[in-house]
Measured scan of single mutants.
Amino acid sequence: MSGIALSRLAQERKAWRKDHPFGFVAVPTKNPDGTMNLMNWECAIPGKKGTPWEGGLFKLRMLFKDDYPSSPPKCKFEPPLFHPNVYPSGTVCLSILEEDKDWRPAITIKQILLGIQELLNEPNIQDPAQAEAYTIYCQNRVEYEKRVRAQAKKFAPS
């Protein structure tokens, strides 16, 4: 494992614990031996107030490669969400998460999670990743928002 990646992720964890947006979660997972795995984080993004996503808490896994922060983490909703920019596998399609697009090593975990929260309610229809959600979003916004509200209710924190 890269010392650069681990040191950056340790800084990220410290900064997150000191200050993070209300309702968001970002925690490194534990290895079988109980030690912390900084390369694999369990996160959760709350649906934004005043949107059909409100009330939901959407679980996301963030996986970092050894060359982080040169390369972005892979962000994957578990379980996958109904959304035009979420692949059926759950992987998020967002330009700041793509090395050859808008990724920059200075982007923080907090910025990534806030960017994904923004994307939930403002899909990028130029870059669809899920045919069904994309089609319904474009053709029947009322039905799309109904499905999103049902999903938010399903993923409401207990």
Rank of each mutant, 00 (worst) to 15 (best):
F77N: 00
R141K: 10
E122Y: 11
I116V: 13
I112E: 04
F82S: 01
I96M: 08
E98D: 15
V25N: 04
F22R: 00
M39S: 05
N121P: 06
T35G: 07
L60G: 09
K101I: 08
A15K: 14
W53P: 04
A129N: 00
D67E: 13
V92Y: 04
N85G: 01
G3T: 08
L114G: 12
P79H: 15
V86K: 08
V92I: 07
K101T: 13
P21G: 04
A106D: 04
F64G: 03
Q11V: 13
V148C: 12
T108Y: 15
P84Y: 02
L63D: 14
H20P: 00
Y68V: 04
A152K: 02
E99L: 00
N124R: 03
I112D: 05
Y137H: 04
P21S: 08
V86D: 02
L57H: 15
I45V: 15
E12P: 02
R104P: 00
E122D: 13
P28W: 00
D19M: 08
L120C: 05
K48W: 01
W41Y: 02
V148W: 03
A106W: 02
V142Q: 12
P84K: 00
G23Q: 00
N85W: 03
P80F: 12
P46Y: 07
P79A: 15
S95Q: 03
K65V: 07
K30N: 06
N140P: 11
R17W: 04
D19R: 04
L94Q: 03
E132G: 11
A133K: 04
N85E: 06
Y68L: 02
C43P: 08
A129S: 06
A10C: 00
W103P: 00
M36I: 09
Y68D: 00
P69E: 01
A26M: 01
E42N: 05
I112H: 12
G50C: 09
I136L: 10
P157E: 06
D102C: 11
N140E: 12
P28H: 07
F77V: 02
A129M: 01
K59E: 11
G50T: 05
K146Q: 09
Q139N: 11
T35S: 14
D100A: 13
V25I: 15
C138G: 08
C138W: 08
P79M: 13
I136S: 12
M39T: 10
K74Y: 15
C43W: 06
A156K: 05
A152T: 08
P52Q: 11
Q111Y: 15
T51I: 03
P69F: 05
E99A: 12
T51Q: 14
Q11R: 13
L6P: 07
I4R: 09
I116S: 11
N121G: 08
M62G: 04
K18V: 13
M39K: 07
K146G: 12
R13D: 03
L113I: 12
E78D: 12
K146R: 12
K154F: 04
L120S: 03
F82D: 02
L120Q: 05
S95A: 04
C75T: 07
I112P: 03
D100V: 15
D102F: 08
D127T: 15
K59N: 12
P21V: 00
F77Y: 03
H83G: 04
L38S: 01
K146S: 15
I116L: 15
L113C: 13
Q117M: 08
L119E: 05
T91G: 15
Q130H: 11
G50P: 01
K49G: 14
R147W: 08
A5K: 06
D102E: 10
A131Y: 11
F64T: 04
F155S: 10
K146C: 11
E98V: 08
E145M: 11
E143N: 12
A129F: 00
C75A: 10
P69W: 06
N140S: 10
N140Q: 14
D19P: 05
N31E: 11
V25Y: 08
L9P: 01
S158Y: 01
H20S: 01
F24D: 12
K30I: 10
C138Y: 00
K65T: 14
A44L: 11
Q151M: 02
P28Q: 04
A150Q: 15
E132L: 09
F82P: 03
A10I: 06
E54Q: 12
R147H: 09
L94N: 04
Y87C: 02
P21D: 04
F22H: 08
A15S: 12
P28C: 01
L9K: 08
F58T: 06
E98F: 08
L120M: 11
K146H: 14
C43L: 04
Q139W: 09
F77I: 04
G34C: 08
E98Q: 02
M62F: 14
I107V: 14
Q11D: 12
G55A: 10
E132T: 08
V25K: 09
L114E: 11
L38T: 09
D66T: 12
Y137K: 06
Q139G: 07
M62T: 09
K59M: 07
L94G: 00
K146M: 14
P73V: 14
P84M: 14
D67N: 11
A10R: 03
S158E: 06
